[in-house]
């Protein structure tokens, strides 16, 4: 038997939600013995579903950031979290890119200056620059 997936969990969750909803309704529209029986059925079903979910749960190997839980807890859409995450990541990426380019320039200029100032180091400087992805203009 394949390990239960998130879909199974979804189904079980939905069943529990249904049970709870039925309970509410039954309690609200109480009509004596039939209602009592129905309620009993519902509760039994709820317990069963809870049990199922409990046994399924350990097999779900998914981890989510606590921020997402917090979002849901406060009734916000977790997709917003996803989106914000994306945007922030893009920003950082661009910043880092700029920095790396600026450093690459610095590296080149520095290399040039060092080679001019201390010609003896030319070979070393060249090697360093090339191994770091730059080119040395002769």
């Amino acid at each position: 038997m394949a390990p239960p997936s998130l879909d199974d969990v979804d189904a079980q969750l939905k069943a529990i939600v249904q049970n709870l909803y039925s309970l509410t309704v039954t309690a609200y529209q109480h009509e004596g013995a039939p209602s009592v029986n129905a309620m009993r059925e519902e509760i039994m079903s709820l317990l069963r579903n809870l049990n199922d979910l409990k046994s399924t749960a350990p097999h779900i190997n998914v981890e989510i950031p606590p921020e997402v839980i917090s979002y849901v807890e406060h009734a916000r859409n977790p997709d917003i979290y996803t989106r914000e995450m994306m945007e922030q990541l893009q920003r950082s990426n661009q910043l880092l890119k700029g920095k790396s380019e600026a450093f690459a320039q610095l590296r080149d200029i520095l290399a040039k200056e060092i080679m001019t100032g201390i010609p003896e180091l030319k070979g070393d400087v060249k090697r360093v620059v090339e191994s770091t992805g730059g080119t040395v203009a002769n």
């Binding site: 969990v9 809870l50 979910l53 409990k54 399924t56 749960a57 350990p58 097999h59 779900i60 190997n61 998914v62 981890e63 989510i64 950031p65 606590p66 839980i69």
Partner: peptide
Amino acid sequence: VYCKVSTLLSRVV
């Protein structure tokens, strides 16, 4: 850093 969904489910149940 992360919360396990399984733990969450078990706890709520």
